[in-house]
Design a binder for these strands. Structure first.
Lengths: 359, 359
DNA sequence: CTGAAAGCGCTTACAG
DNA sequence: CTGAAAGCGCTTACAG
């Protein structure tokens, strides 16, 4: 424990050879006579020698590690993203190192600077509060990719269309007063609240209605935020459905509903976003939007690798599908008002207007 | 992006001073005349110079970072532990760096070796498959703490007593056929399945009953494992309660119940372990055991810091409370058999025999 | 097949 | 107040 770690010089001396020979024995970059090699490896074992990571990194000018910066990982969608990222980077034999910024936004910047001071070869910025441009400045000459918000990622997520789809879906099922709880982890150039407000206003207008701006509550991707947002929206009265920018937030809707004796989906319908594994375990299983984690991770990593190799990616963007995973948290209001309470769930027939998966 | 990062020599040359002066200007370890200092900082900004982390670490022989090795973080209890650990280490101004081993157990060992080659000052091993002794060997001279399984942690978790408590609690409520789904992340010297089998056998014997070993199913802390375990146990027939070594597993019980039209708690009662935030959002809210994350993290970190400073901790062990958080997933079978279905929940009165929190 | 030497980018005695 | 030099633990031309 307390003892100093052995260095390559210790091994060399013990084996009666020069440090360069030890180095070559380890790397296999040149032929070493068998007896010498054996002596060296024997001493390495005896001294429990392990090459200093830093010294190696300094010489090679590379660490084989990618740093991922994230606020916290208690949110299941964040942790799923991290696991997937780790698996994907492994394919390029990069190790992943995660930095947790915590709730303090200033610490995020510090972490990015820290990481990019040679600690890692490249950085993936998952902090919603730091834009791609800011991240690039903070990281200096270290390549950085800011998740999906990066212009260069050949992949696009059409949140506006998704909002329209969800609105259509709910409207078709007879919902008229629909609330939304925002997620901060969207495009910082166009906050979720603002974007959704615009889409909802247009949508309602086309149906001859007007949006009450209080129907959109600020969320923070946490359960508590979901509870508070639901409270705010439900106070407005006659709400039949709430959708959320994040599953964790939607769990908060479930919590609020239970605490207030409100039934899902009979009294209130809910739709989440992410489709984290826990969404299916709720009772009733939650209807939510499948976030294309794997595709996004694949492209994020591909872009980072390209930057590391100083290559550019072929142009062209594809828009990724974000299908609605239809489970059992949304009621068909038409049937309810028709008095058929028991069969309040939407039928299994595929909705034509919106990409969906029936589970 | 492609450009080489500036070094201290570049700055020194640009500012017309020696590298040591630049170094001292940065560290503030000696007085520098104002004009010189200004010139230096101007150049630092112009060149976007950032000291090489590795070069610094090599000189200082310390990195200010603690490495945490974990299989994956998609499990909410793991991610909560990580967040808490990050916050605690921050108090000692250590940064946390997380290594994800993934599902491959061999990668865990590699990661520990990697981390302990000077990459971090200390290591926290959260891999259930690697014992404290193995971890210490893998980490060589780098201090390592293996979570709660370390003998030196002055804190003890009495899982055996907890199992007895839960069994008592369920028995008092009229449950007779009780299943359990194990968690692998317990003491590797005494696998959860074996320990629980022993306790359950004793318990049932004292009540004149015998344990059917199939009532204990192997879990893997995943939702899927929970579903499979529930399937195995429920096939045995007449089961009224299942408890699990992990909330994620218990979510799987909820999932199985929904898929099979079995109601919680009316038909089957469930108790989890961890009290992750999502547990309260389930419907019905899940009764589970509060895992003392904060205390455990506090002590884990304290021990690691002591090892880093080559101090020893004062002797003495305290046993941490693991209270049952009583929510609404356990039914009172006596009331059910008395025909009072509507009020199948246990009353709010505190159970005397087991530490608990009523929510 | 092996070794002496230079150098990676810093910090810190040592000297002025 | 400032600089020249040594050294942290490696790797890799260069030389034999």
């Amino acid at each position: 424990m307390g003892k100093q770690a052995a260095t390559i010089v210790d091994v060399a001396r013990a084996a009666g050879v020069s440090p360069s020979t030890v180095s070559h024995a380890l790397s296999g970059k040149r032929e070493i006579s068998l007896p010498v090699k054996e002596r060296i490896f024997k001493k390495i074992r005896e001294l429990d020698y392990r090459p200093s990571f830093y010294a190696q990194a300094m010489k090679r000018n590379s660490t084989g590690m990618i740093g991922v910066v994230v606020n916290e990982c208690r949110n299941p969608s964040a942790s799923l993203f991290l696991d997937t990222l780790a698996a994907e980077l492994e394919k390029y034999s990069y190790k992943i190192v995660i930095g947790l910024a915590g709730l303090d936004h200033r610490k995020g910047e510090e972490l990015l600077r820290h990481f990019s001071a040679g600690l890692v070869d490249g950085v993936i910025n998952l902090l919603p509060q730091i834009t791609p441009e800011e991240a690039q400045i903070l990281c200096g000459s270290t390549p950085v990719v800011t998740n999906i918000r990066e212009k260069l990622i050949p992949v696009r997520l059409d949140y506006d269309q998704l909002t329209r789809n969800i609105l259509n879906y709910l409207w078709d099922l007879g919902h008229r007063r629909i609330g939304y709880i925002t997620s901060p982890s969207r495009d910082p150039h166009r906050p979720d609240g603002e974007a959704t407000r615009q889409i909802m206003t247009e949508f309602l207008k086309s149906h001859g209605e007007e949006l009450d701006p209080r129907m959109i509550a600020e969320g923070d991707d946490s359960i508590e935020g979901g509870i508070a947002g639901t409270e705010q929206i439900m106070r407005l009265g006659n709400i039949t459905a709430i959708f959320a920018g994040n599953d964790q937030t939607a769990f908060g809707i479930y919590r609020w509903a239970y605490l207030n004796g409100v039934r899902i989906p009979d009294d209130i319908s809910v739709i989440g976003f992410d489709d984290v594994p826990q969404a299916a375990t709720l009772i009733p299983p939650m209807t939510t939007v499948r976030f294309p984690v794997q595709e996004l991770v694949t492209h994020t990593v591909k872009l980072l690798i390209a930057k590391l190799r100083q290559e550019t990616l072929p142009p062209g963007q594809i828009t990724l599908d974000m299908p609605l995973v239809i489970r059992h948290s949304v009621a068909d209001r038409k049937r309810i008002s028709a008095g058929r309470r028991k069969k309040a769930l939407p039928s299994g027939k595929k909705n034509k207007t919106i990409p969906s998966i029936i589970l």
